[in-house]
Every structure is written in structure tokens, then in C-alpha cells.
Design a protein around this nucleic acid. Sequence first.
DNA 1: CTGATATTGTGTTTATTTTACACAATTGCG
DNA 2: CGCAATTGTGTAAAATAAACACAATATCAG
Lengths: 245, 245
Amino acid sequence: MSTEKTYQKSIKTFKTIQLEVQTTNQVALSVDCVIFGFDENKLKVLLIRSDLKKYLSKWSLLGDLVKPEEDLDTAAYRILKQRTGLDDVYLEQVQTFGKVDRHPGGRVVTVAFCSLLNIQHHRLKILEHELHWHDVETVSDLAFDHKQILDTSLNQLRKRVQEHPLGFSLLPSKFSLRELQNLYEAILNTKLDRRNFRKKFFAMDCLVDINEIEQNVPHRPGKLYKFDYNKFEKKKKKKWPGIDF
Amino acid sequence: MSTEKTYQKSIKTFKTIQLEVQTTNQVALSVDCVIFGFDENKLKVLLIRSDLKKYLSKWSLLGDLVKPEEDLDTAAYRILKQRTGLDDVYLEQVQTFGKVDRHPGGRVVTVAFCSLLNIQHHRLKILEHELHWHDVETVSDLAFDHKQILDTSLNQLRKRVQEHPLGFSLLPSKFSLRELQNLYEAILNTKLDRRNFRKKFFAMDCLVDINEIEQNVPHRPGKLYKFDYNKFEKKKKKKWPGIDF
DNA sequence: CTGATATTGTGTTTATTTTACACAATTGCG
DNA sequence: CGCAATTGTGTAAAATAAACACAATATCAG
């Protein structure tokens, strides 16, 4: 069942239970997943059409109520699995949004999760629903407070991707350095110096040359690499405390 | 399932759904505050004795259920106000903890907040309750999953304090450079080079010399400074995107 | 009041990291 | 076979971070 439908269901009964809620101090709790992808050199986010009356025709994040016997991250993984068929993706809690009036149907506190996945691997299940990948740079006007949640998640992603090797989840297992750079430029929304970028990653010694090259490019083809997590771990610098204002 | 179908179902099974919503889609939500202080050159955390039977004699964070008409941060501020009498402290959401079995009394999801306050200013109200400041380095064996919450909060504090001028909330408004360095060393649990530390802060141009010196120290007294947030904002470096593995 | 003790205040040198930048080599295509 | 596009490569300059020592000033003990 989609988030919206579940929401609706609980909303229908909201007024009746409101008194009870107030006396028991309980609230509805949901999880919303900000699912990032990378395609056509753009950072994308996966959205679904809201079927809530108030938000008719608006797009929203993928979410659902948390079940009573379900951990938060379990709920997030469940949503990912239901929507994309995937269960081995990167997933991380972002923040919790709990403004009293954030949901038109009543008090629903939501825990936002961020996940990264490779669009190429999961095209199939997407078309079944009213699901679409949206260019993050042009998204606006989402349902609920989902724009705020997206912005927060994107900011966090920008920060974390500079310190942790998250980006590789968004790429095919074989990739060229140009693709890698395009990814970073898309996430950070900036231009990076090509030579320094290459130098940085080669110095990390975490890219394995697999002796293949790009195919069907109208120019000199680049070499393909894969990411070696173990090598990365060994080489990454231990950041010891300084002040970095 | 279509919206219409959902609607019909909710009508037909109204009472069932009402019960279901109440028992399956709602959880208790609490806020726990990790309140850091700084005294005797140690980083401290404010804890209260748990009154839960299962956790008798154990210490726990300061928390309370979120009220149905209360925003999350409002709840956190309320707890701070109740416990310390303070309402102008630094407060930031850390993370949400929602393991199904984290609370022995049933499902309680908790949103952790971190706050920083100056112990000197708030000694008075502390003694009224079973409240104590504990050295963070030696805390262990807290009630619930509060040790995990503390660890997570401390890690986040360590990270943020290196990028933002949070530390000043923990100091008196007038402080010596030695006190400032002791604070950073306590938070980061490390030793810093004194000359480089001073150089760093003076280069930031955010410390105002107030022409006073320490009193009653058995050695050459240091000058006292106060922190100027506006100057800090102007001077802080714009961190432009790089990769920093 | 004098010497012992403790800590402040201060600059320079070296090493490391980051930035800026240009040209030859390889492929596809017409 | 020449044109267009992009890869692959290195070095010099600039900025930042790290290491490090000694004179000045206060309290305290006698």
C-alpha cells in the first residue's frame, strides 16, 4: 500500500482517535525516503504522485507509516524494496521532521532517510507506478514539507560525499573517471579541475584499472575502473582534530 | 489498491480501522536531551536518576514524551527549561532512535537533541533533583539505549565543533585562551599545539580583547576575551567543494 | 624582597596540501 | 586522411598546517 493511501486511511479515522491520542501521547510515525540516482549527468531524486486530495497532482517522497513492530531502518528498507526491488542499497538516516502541522491530516512525525542507487540497474520496476526520476536542481513545490526534507537531505549528501566514498553507489560498477567526475560535479553543483580530480583519486589508490575502455564514444575512449572499498579503508587519511572554521 | 476502494474499506470497517490505527499506526514519541557542560577542564553531561523499576539506580538522559500539539524542538526546549531554567541555549537535533525494544514499557521512539550550556551559570537548579554532571569520559551503563545516544551525540559534537563555533556556549562570556584550548582538548579528547591554536583563533579575528586579565591564578595571568559572532561570520572561510577522504 | 615555579605571549622554518595550468595521444567520423 | 572531441599526464606557485624555544609576568614560600 502506498504511503498516501496508508495516510488517508489513518486520516479518515483521525478525528475519532484524536481524543485518545491526546490522552495517550501517541503520534503517527512515518518514514520518508529520499532516493537519489544519477543519470544523464544529473543528480535525480525518485518521486511519486501524491494522491492526497490537498496535494493532488503534486509530487512527494516515498514514504509509509512505520509498523508497530518495525524498526525505523527496517521500515526504510521495506519501502525501498517495495519501490525499487532493491535491498542492498546505501541507506542512512537524515533527520526527523515533526512540525505539528506538517501533515494536513493530523500529527504525523516523519523520519527522513537518504539512499543512493544506480538508476541503470533498476529501471524496470519504476514504470509500474506513478514514479519518476526528477532532476534535483529543478524540483520544487512538493507535497507536505517534502521540499524541505529534500533540501536537508541534499545538503547532508553534499557534505558526506566529500568525506566518504558514497558516490560509487550511484554509478555502474565499471565507470570512467569522467563519469566519476561528472557525478561529483552534479552532486556538489560545481566544476572541478580535471587533473586535480584524477590526481586525488589515484592518490587514494582505491580505483582498480580493469583493463577495459569505454565503448561507442565519439572520441578517445577512457579507461574503466572499479572501486575497491578495502583499499580505500586502508588509505583514507585519519582526520585528526584540528579547527577548520 | 485504488483510492476509492480504500475509502470504501475504511467505511465498512470503520471500527476495526479505528482500533487498528490506534494500536498499529501510532507510537509514543519522546525527546531526549544530551546536555553538555564544561567544568574542571572536563566535558560533562547532565544525567538524572531513572525512576523506572527496571533501571533503578541507573542514570539516564533528560527526556519526556512529546505532547500531541508540540513541535519536536519545542519539546526539547521545554525539557531544558524545566531542568535547568534556561531557554536561550544552543540546541540541535542529533538523531532518532527507534529500535522496537529500546524501551521496556513498549514502543517509544525518541528524538535525541544535543545542547550546550555553561555550567557556571546554572548551578542553582541542579541540586533540586537527582541530577548530576558526569564526566563524559567515564560514563557507562546508562538506562535504555542512552549510552548509545550519548556516544552518537558526542561524535556529532566532535565533528561540528571543528566546523562551527559552538564551543563558546560552554564557556563563560569572558574566557582566557587557555580555557578555550582546554575546552577543545576536552571535547576532542586530544592535545593541541598551543601556539598554533592561538594563531588559528587570532587569524579568525573573532575574539575581542576586553582588557581584563585572569584573577587569582598562581602564575602570569592570561588576557580575557569574548567571542564576536558577527566578526566570525564575516571571516569564516567559504568551504568550496573538494574531496577530503 | 628575592628566588623558585608556573604559565603566558610571541615568529620562523619546514613540510604538506591545494591550486592553476598546456600539450601530446587516441579514437570516431566525414 | 584530416578534423573534432576528449583522454592522459606533470610541474611550479601558493596556501595551509606543523613543529618548535625563549623571554616576560604573575604568585608563592621563605
